[in-house]
Write a protein that binds this DNA or RNA. Structure first.
Lengths: 242, 242
DNA sequence: TGATATAATATGTCTAGTTGTATAGTTATA
DNA sequence: TATAACTATACAACTAGACATATTATATCA
């Protein structure tokens, strides 16, 4: 790991800069989520070319200490923490029990036509309308998962409004009269993050995601939710309860 | 070689967004005439700046898939056709039923000797002459598919002239006395567009194509057409009835 | 009720700033 | 003198914000 060259006289400038920034972060000058000065300013401050600063930043990125966003800046990365989630998948309760602060960010709620596949999964007529709920789950401010939940509006009138008002799927379903439901199917696969997923989850495009596809239904059998979730693979461990 | 430690490609974000929306439209999430979410909402949904969404939309507009009205919104201009597979594929009727303007552009019609494989598929003697009909199918001016249809001239005298005069295979066959036919085999694969295919279909080389290979025959069993079609994967959805 | 002014939205355009990438040139050093 | 480290420049991709302009919904008044 110590890739210091044999000649111990001089350390490259970029390594010195990286060490300096590392120290700034370590002693709290820049805290998690803070934006670092722009590359140009850092170049001025250290009296070097912008490329040299970039070389240093690239190292910090590889270490996972810093994350950059094109056009926006460089940010101190939050410390990745593995997080266990139960088989019942009650996001809020699990996180609260683990002493972390759950948060849900709504990206989109819209009523639209169902695709043939979605119609089949939700047992609605082809072309029938569904409510699509797209969002981002976070823990302590760090993105954990992207999700898309589909609901049959015909059987769940007012679900779109309920989703706006509540904190989670369970509560929203309760608001429209679904007090209990069971998971009737779950599928797991690994996929690669595309560009937009990577943006939301603060990952690189091509990083692995854990995708779950599942259907929840009321006890007598009618599906009430068709959900897909993409977990950031290296931040989440899914544990199935036995 | 080791410039990328992990397999991570780089696609511009706007291209990923354009592809996503294209897929949404192709799958029927947004149908012809539907209004897309506003640029601001899409920006939230994909986690990018509004300008990046606009860049993606501009591309879809250039493709003719989306049209915008200032102050009003962005609308789906043309829905990729749901194309029923199996039974009888009647290009013109399908498109007309979907409220679109079908068009067929003849690239080449020639009589030539059949290759061994073609001879077998059409049940003609090896080296027998066939009529090769090569063309491009469009809907509302947008290229949908490349096709190559082969006919046994021995059993269908005048088919070459009939193809020149009519609008489609069905009508041409009718002109030479084939009033009804059924599809006896269909095969589906995914291939990548080569340079010339991409040129005709207004795609990029390497974009995915859906290739169907099929044989039509008169009800008693003699083949009358051996056809191959390359659909632009983004613009067509093949639907299996059943 | 109906016409109209007003406010809220939506797209179109512009300017400016930041990171990402590519190419070429300079300098120190082994 | 060959190579790695660094400089210099230019452009592409994306973010951020402000403002103009067209459309649509809402409120108001006769």
């Amino acid at each position: 790991m110590n890739d210091r060259p044999k000649g111990r006289r001089k350390t490259p400038v970029w390594q010195a800069i990286a060490a300096h920034l590392r120290g700034d972060i370590a002693e709290g000058r820049y805290k998690a989520g803070d934006r670092l000065p722009t590359e140009s300013r850092l170049a001025e401050r250290f009296g070097v070319n912008r490329h040299t600063v970039r070389h240093a930043l690239a190292h910090l990125i590889q270490e996972g200490l810093v994350r950059t966003r094109r056009g926006s800046g460089a940010f101190v990365a939050a410390t990745p923490t593995d997080y266990p989630i139960g088989g019942r998948m009650r996001f809020h309760e699990n996180l609260l029990a683990a002493g972390r602060l759950p948060e849900k960010r709504i990206l989109q709620i819209e009523n639209r036509a169902a695709t043939p596949g979605e119609a089949r999964a939700l047992a609605v007529p082809e072309g029938g309308y569904i409510c699509a709920y797209h969002g981002l789950s976070l823990a302590d401010g760090q993105p954990i998962a992207l999700f898309e939940s589909l609901f049959p509006v015909s059987r769940l009138p007012g679900i779109d409004v309920a989703l706006q008002q509540t904190r989670g799927v369970t509560q929203a379903l309760d608001l429209v009269g679904i007090t209990d439901f069971v998971r009737v199917s779950t599928r797991l696969t690994a996929v690669l993050a595309d560009a937009t997923q990577a943006l939301h989850l603060h990952l690189q495009e091509g990083d692995p995601l854990l995708r779950t596809t599942g259907v929840n239904a009321v006890p007598d059998g009618a599906p009430v939710e068709f959900g897909r979730t993409w977990f950031a693979g290296d931040r989440v461990t899914l544990t199935l309860d036995g």
